[in-house]
């Protein structure tokens, strides 16, 4: 149970960082933290105490594999989610570089042309 609470704490920490910090790099770090908290949660869903890796090797007994191996699906999902996160982060960082080029600052409170 405590691990789920810690995951929630990580998630909220990311949300706090996103809301409270003005520097856009720190905001990105907040988004990443939130994303990884969600990924961690997904991995924990498939966790099994004393489980084995869900990889069938030559000569392993199938019954032991079925009863003991952890759930492989969340791992596949997390891999995909990480890849998607990577794409998003690459775009965010690229946008940051461009924003710095245009505005000369990383401070979100100074990047304020749009209002209303």
């Amino acid at each position: 149970m405590i691990v789920y609470l810690l995951t929630t704490f990580l998630f909220v920490l990311g949300l706090y960082c996103l809301v409270a910090k003005k520097n856009i790099i720190k905001k990105i770090i907040g988004v990443i933290t939130m994303e990884y908290a969600a990924n961690l949660f997904l991995i924990l869903v498939g966790y099994k105490a004393r489980g084995i890796a869900p990889i069938l090797t030559k000569g392993a007994s199938k019954t032991e594999f079925v009863t003991k191996s952890v759930d492989p699906l969340p791992q596949a999902l997390v891999l995909t989610a990480i890849v998607i996160g990577l794409g998003t982060i690459a775009l965010m960082v690229a946008l940051c570089i461009r924003l710095y080029e245009r505005y000369g600052t990383f401070d979100m409170s100074e990047i304020r042309r749009l209002r209303g």
Binding site: I84, G87, V93
Partner: peptide, 13 residues
């Protein structure tokens, strides 16, 4: 190369 950067991310997705 903003567009280059994100296009790749999507392809992997």
């Amino acid at each position: 190369a903003i567009v280059g950067g994100d296009r790749t991310g999507k392809g992997k997705a």
